[in-house]
Design a binder for these strands. Structure first.
Length: 222
DNA sequence: GCGACAG
DNA sequence: ATCTTGTCGC
């Protein structure tokens, strides 16, 4: 048997190689419940706070929140990010009172050196459609999207579009969107834009980021 | 060999 | 990611 969350980078690479074959970057889900996933770290880096916030869609109402504190076992290695935050994010997700139809993850999906970033990884593992939204590129090059909200430019890597630079807010830097699993490129961009209202990052991710920070603050006290 | 490098 | 206040701009 193989571990779901190996501690060894070599083992993680082998598992990622197997998971990447199951990634399906196609589909156009019409979710009713979307979960935003993000994490925060204790100042010494020994603890990962994973947060999952459930939103209704397209209404965008915050309907449930959950978080967990886990020991940060896996080191930060660009390309193996899922093995560092995945355990805490999955644990938080399990604490929600309902299962989402779509998950939004802070990080990349297919815009990854082996096309299997944390969004794709979690999507395949959970069997739930997923989308990755990152603040900056890990791989590839992207043109500057138009200045107005809604504009997008492809992220090219090894001769193919692996994601999109999306202007979710006029006047703000673009966000990088890529399919995680069971969602195509166009649908991923459309869904992220539909969830980005007034701010650069989509609402579920803003809420998850806040939830993780609050969890850390409340834990740091006592 | 020299950079680049999600959070 | 995290350490950190005020401050410039829409």
């Amino acid at each position: 048997m193989h571990a779901v969350w190996p501690d060894d980078p070599g083992e993680a690479l082998a598992l990622q190689a197997r998971l990447r074959r199951r990634v399906v970057a196609r589909g156009a889900p019409t979710p009713a419940l979307v979960a935003g996933l993000d994490a925060a770290y204790s100042r010494d880096g020994a603890t990962v706070y994973g947060a999952a916030v459930l939103f209704s869609f397209p209404g965008l109402e915050d309907v449930d929140e959950a978080w967990t504190a886990c020991e940060a076992r896996f080191p930060y290695v660009p390309g193996l990010f899922a093995f560092r935050e995945g355990p805490a994010l999955c644990a938080a997700l399990e604490r929600l009172d309902r299962t989402p139809d779509l998950i939004l993850v802070h990080g990349h999906g297919t815009a990854h050196p082996r096309r299997c970033g944390i969004a794709s990884h979690l999507g395949v593992l959970l069997g739930i459609p997923s989308i990755g939204v990152a603040d900056r590129l890990l791989v590839g090059k992207a043109g500057e999207p138009g200045a107005e909200r809604g504009a997008a430019a492809p992220v090219c890597f090894e001769g193919e579009a692996v994601g999109w630079a999306v202007r979710t807010r006029t006047g703000a830097r673009p966000v990088y969107v890529s399919p995680g699993h069971l969602v195509g490129h166009a649908a991923a961009v459309d869904l992220v834009l539909a969830m980005s209202v007034g701010y650069r990052r989509p609402e579920p991710l803003r809420a998850a980021h806040r939830c993780a920070s609050v969890a850390r603050a409340g834990m740091t006290k006592r």
